[in-house]
Design a protein around this nucleic acid. Sequence first.
DNA 1: AGCTAGATCTACT
DNA 2: GTAGATCTAGCTA
Length: 186
Amino acid sequence: MHILPRSFYQRDPLTVAPDLLGKILLHNLDGVILSGRIVETEAYLAFIDQASHSYNGKTARNSSLFGEAGHAYVHSIHKQNCIDIVTELVNIPSSILIRSLIPLKGIELMKTLRNKKDIKLLTNGPGKLCQALSISKDLDSIDVTKSSSELTILDDGFRINPAQIKRSKRVGLSKAKESKYRFFIA
DNA sequence: AGCTAGATCTACT
DNA sequence: GTAGATCTAGCTA
């Protein structure tokens, strides 16, 4: 069990996105652990990707995307929060959106936070998993590669069969819908 | 100060 | 599968 190093994120987002599948997103709330295994991601590219929030330049909202790889980008959309992890280099604003998890630790607390009993409904969407793991915009720009951070991404040695990784079009977009930048475990 | 679009969710059919 | 709810950042003036 170890934290993924910054070098993991300093690569092409289309490489990082499938590599993140099977890794663990963990939020440490003063010792109370909320965690889940990542089973669905989407890549958002720098400069050429019209669907990326960075496409129209840097603003107060998206400034995290222009920072160092391995930091989070938390933003709100339609009353929900979504979380990305920044990839590549400073001023190359690409990222990976975490779309879905399988709950691991803190499931009872997640049920309370989500006001749902069915485990399948706790973290099966980008807004839902932020609610279940108590991820708010307070965590925007947090470094997920430092053990002192309350939000980290871990590798516990779990490996998926590459044949189980599927690729498809991204979800919920109005622009650049056709690019197949979504990765998930079958 | 007002307008608009948006990387969603839920409930219902 | 589709409709409706609902909030915020960013832009214009």
